[in-house]
């Protein structure tokens, strides 16, 4: 496939070119040392070389909060607010975040298709970028290469002087049309190595998890865990939500609102009658890890964790999902039945 080159000095011009005919979302600086996807407006503010964003692009398809229904109590009527199709360009997406979008696509098309997610997802075009793994990334262990361009319409690979450009789809060619890119025929620079690894592939993880239901790691982790739910809320493949209804002060009209929720939260496990079906933090932590490496994976054969490292990087208690999983692997491998 033909390759092109984008000099670092022309990145802002390229963003401006995209902005001329598209809505573009891209990483920007946020706070003192973080990054977040935001609507691009000033090309110079877009950052392509970043470790990870606080939230993934998931937030554009499954927003943190959204209104599902407007109702009027005096008229006894309700209406579903229209959902705008996305039709946007997502620039600067890492391969693990795109892998996460594919997982969400699966979750939201299996069973009842999720109308709002699919509508927002419609027309999305992705321009991926490579990244250098930091001390939290472990995507390589779950089979997602930093140069993987699955799902991308364009892909930018970091080079000393700029970016090597791949254009694998017709949509990508349309995005690039009218912007001068020189052909480039040298091979891509070698990938930087991951420093974090999960020791075994998914094919064996299901068994490891099965053997680890009563492992002491769950209680030990629970001693440090604050049960704050951060690890769920930053995860690009988590999709649990809560639904609440609120009425206006006159009690005549209101809204049904959906917002992100998480299985680490105590209230998430509360059901009618005041029962808690996973009252202990240890049980919730196990559930979280099983949701990434067992429950959905048993059905799809794939890890539902994409190795972005967000949960570990964002945990104030510094609880590491890689350490938990590797400890389970080590201990279960001592058990003969798993080895054979």
């Amino acid at each position: 496939m033909a390759q092109y080159f984008l000099e670092q000095a022309r990145v802002a011009d390229f963003v401006a070119h995209l902005l001329a005919s598209n809505t573009v979302y891209a990483p920007h600086r946020k706070g003192s040392r973080s990054y977040a996807f935001a609507k691009a407006d000033d090309p110079a503010a877009v950052v392509l070389d970043y470790p990870r964003t606080l939230s993934s692009v998931k937030k554009f398809f499954l927003p943190p909060r959204e209104v599902l229904l407007n109702f009027d109590l005096t008229l006894d009527a309700a209406s579903v607010p229209p959902v705008e199709p996305g039709n946007a360009v997502f620039l600067g997406v890492h391969s693990y975040d795109l892998a996460a979008v594919r997982r969400l696509d699966f979750n939201f098309t299996t069973g009842n298709p999720e109308r709002n997610y699919l509508a927002r997802r419609d027309g999305a075009r992705f321009i991926g970028v490579s990244y250098v793994p930091d001390k939290f990334h472990f995507a390589g262990s779950v089979g997602i290469d930093p140069y993987d361009m699955t799902g991308c319409d364009m892909f930018l690979t970091k080079h000393a002087d700029g970016w090597i450009v791949d254009i694998p789809t017709g949509e990508g060619s349309e995005l690039a049309a009218g912007f001068k890119l020189e052909a480039h025929d040298e091979p891509k620079p070698p990938r930087a190595h991951f420093t974090q690894h999960v020791f075994v592939p998914q094919a064996r993880l299901g068994k490891v998890m099965e053997a680890s239901y009563d492992h002491p790691v769950w209680n030990e982790t629970a001693d440090a865990c604050l049960g704050c739910g951060t690890c769920n809320l930053v995860c690009p493949t988590c999709y649990c939500f809560n639904v609440q209804e609120n009425v206006d002060i006159a009690c005549t009209s209101g809204q049904r609102e959906r917002s992100w929720d998480g299985c680490m939260l105590r209230g998430f496990t509360e059901v009618a009658g005041g029962e808690f079906f996973r009252e202990k933090v240890a049980a919730r932590q196990r559930h979280r890890v099983y949701r990434k490496f067992k429950y959905i994976s048993d059905v799809t054969g794939q890890p539902w964790c994409v190795g972005c490292g967000r949960c570990t990087a964002s945990c104030t208690a510094k609880i590491s999902i890689v350490e938990i999983v590797n400890r389970l692997i080590r201990d279960s491998e001592r058990d003969e039945s798993i080895l054979t």
Binding site: K30, G31, S32, S55, G229, L233, W260, L265, T316
Partner: peptide, 22 residues
């Protein structure tokens, strides 16, 4: 229904940088 979750949840919904990062 009284909320019984940490402020961290709302910080994540609002995509704030964690104060501990600063």
């Amino acid at each position: 229904e009284e909320p019984d979750l940490a402020v961290c949840v709302e910080c994540k919904l609002n995509e704030n940088e964690c104060v501990y990062e600063r």
